[in-house]
Computed example of a mutant assay.
Amino acid sequence: MDCCSNSSQTDLCFSYSGAAGSREYACIPVRKMVTGTRVCRGDGDCAGRSGAASVCVTPSLENQTRFIRVTHPPNTHMLFVGYLPHLQHAVSLTNFIPRFSFLLFDVPVFLETFCKYVVSLSGALAVVNSVPCFALDGQWMLNALLEATLVTVVTDRQKRELLGFFVLLAGSALLAANVALGLWMVTAR
């Protein structure tokens, strides 16, 4: 039921139990309703100290529409009427508060996200660069590893270089296959 004609920015349609248990509707200013009032489940919860008659009202909303009051102590309440996913996308929470008024709220979150991406990208490039593959640092790492560990086992230098060549060939083939598979998966969608 929409008794406020959806045209008011300050009023909302509330429902309450009228005479003989029928549902009644009233267009009431929302901010006045939520400030200084208690949460009630029935008319008995709203009984005042003076004994005056009072009723418990609830927002008259559509099935998926919600009325939410967000409180943040030094400021006034933020009131939201609408679909919950819209609120989740419209409001962002942060642990940071700027010390100066000319600084934006988004700068610390932007810097934090940027640093995470830089660390992730650097780590990924370090892993790819250390793959035993031709023209990458992994080629020189493999040569140094073979020279340090296989000198006593394989005494012939040409055999060690041949073994290193086949390992580099296998690593290059695996890296090329991985890149080709990744490109195919991206373009196949």
Results as ranks from 00 to 15, higher is better:
2 D>R: 13
2 D>E: 13
3 C>P: 01
3 C>E: 11
5 S>W: 11
6 N>C: 09
6 N>G: 14
9 Q>V: 03
9 Q>R: 10
10 T>A: 12
11 D>I: 08
12 L>P: 00
13 C>H: 08
14 F>I: 07
14 F>S: 08
15 S>I: 06
17 S>I: 14
22 S>G: 11
23 R>C: 04
24 E>K: 12
24 E>D: 13
25 Y>S: 07
26 A>M: 13
31 R>S: 15
32 K>G: 15
33 M>F: 03
38 R>C: 13
38 R>G: 10
40 C>I: 00
40 C>Y: 01
41 R>Q: 14
42 G>I: 01
44 G>F: 10
50 S>P: 02
51 G>K: 04
51 G>M: 07
51 G>Y: 07
52 A>C: 07
54 S>R: 15
57 V>D: 05
57 V>N: 06
57 V>F: 12
59 P>T: 06
60 S>T: 04
63 N>D: 05
64 Q>W: 14
65 T>I: 14
65 T>L: 11
65 T>R: 09
66 R>C: 12
68 I>Q: 04
68 I>T: 10
68 I>K: 02
68 I>M: 06
70 V>T: 05
70 V>K: 02
70 V>S: 06
72 H>Y: 12
73 P>W: 04
74 P>Y: 06
74 P>N: 04
76 T>Y: 05
81 V>C: 07
83 Y>R: 15
83 Y>V: 14
87 L>W: 07
87 L>D: 07
88 Q>L: 15
88 Q>I: 15
88 Q>T: 12
90 A>I: 07
91 V>H: 04
91 V>K: 02
92 S>E: 13
92 S>K: 15
92 S>G: 05
96 F>T: 03
99 R>M: 12
107 V>F: 13
107 V>A: 12
110 F>W: 06
111 L>N: 03
111 L>K: 06
113 T>E: 07
114 F>W: 02
117 Y>A: 06
118 V>Y: 06
119 V>T: 00
120 S>I: 02
128 V>K: 00
128 V>T: 04
129 N>R: 03
131 V>M: 13
133 C>H: 01
136 L>F: 08
137 D>E: 10
137 D>F: 05
138 G>R: 03
138 G>L: 01
139 Q>S: 10
144 A>Y: 08
144 A>T: 11
145 L>T: 09
145 L>N: 03
148 A>V: 01
151 V>C: 11
155 T>P: 03
156 D>P: 00
159 K>H: 13
160 R>H: 01
166 F>D: 01
166 F>M: 01
171 G>K: 04
172 S>A: 05
175 L>D: 00
180 A>Y: 03
182 G>V: 01
185 M>Q: 09
186 V>M: 06
